[in-house]
Amino acid sequence: MSARRKPSKRHRVPFRARLRRDWPLLLMTLPGALVLLVFHYLPALGNVVAFQDYNPFAGDSPLQAFLGSEWIGFANFENLFSSDAFWESVWNTLSITAFQLVFFFPLPIALAILLNSVLSTRLRSFIQTVVYLPHFFSWVLVVTFFVQMLGGAGLLAQEMREAGLQPWNIMTNPDTFIILVTAESVWKDVGWGTIIFLAALSTIDTDLYEQSAVDGASRWRRLWHVTLPGLRPVIVLLLILRLGDALSVGFEQFILQRDAVGRGAAEVLDTFVYYHAIATGDYGFGAAAGLFKAAIGLVLILAANKMAHLLGERGIYSKS
């Protein structure tokens, strides 16, 4: 540890000397900071168009149009909150989040425990290699694979027709859409999701297993009393992240399939913003929906983190 890390020493070095010493570091940080300023913080501030009757034709560039557009207070939000389509998209989003918490969230944990019990290192790393792969596919590819396998002209339908059965088309059925999107998410990310749990499993002290085995605990009791408590901090952390992100269920996945199953099932908050702002040009209204989502999201993540602290877990960030 160098002395520089001690805060007491730090304050004794005068500002000019620190500037002379650290200017190369500042210069290196600058380009990245600028990119974030322009493409992250500027749009974050730009959310104020939610309070405007933004007219893209009020000027030659978006900036001029912004300056030339009328401020209308909360009118966009009033329209938004009285729009049935908006509440439908909120409802769809929350249902999908809830559904995936039950049917997706536990799967990587189960798969990680299963993988961890495979004794052969080579077999285990082969399985890992295969199941991580879909994480790197784009949503266009994932949806393509599902259409080719399960769609009306896909492999499953083809085999069923050959067997003399009536094929069904799960890809265009709005009633089963929630199952479909969950299956797609599972296919894409269940393997990737195991990484963090495998890491947590490897930090559990093997003596605990040995001692409980000697004390007569069966494998299921060891799973319940040693493995799951060992995974608890990671599970809580990921639950918090998921809850804080409850209003995001993915974007591309839904835009890609919205036409096939219809708006009623596939409209989520993000696609609502896209279709009501970018596609139709009602920017103020769409921005209001986006700002609503961002505000609720921020509250959710702060609340979930608070809850984790109350439960005695570390959470995502601590007050230090």
Binding site: A44, G46, V49, P62, I278
Partner: peptide, 9 residues
């Protein structure tokens, strides 16, 4: 969160 609409603009 930067927001889709302002990012687009």
């Amino acid at each position: 969160y930067p927001g889709l609409v302002p990012s687009y603009l």
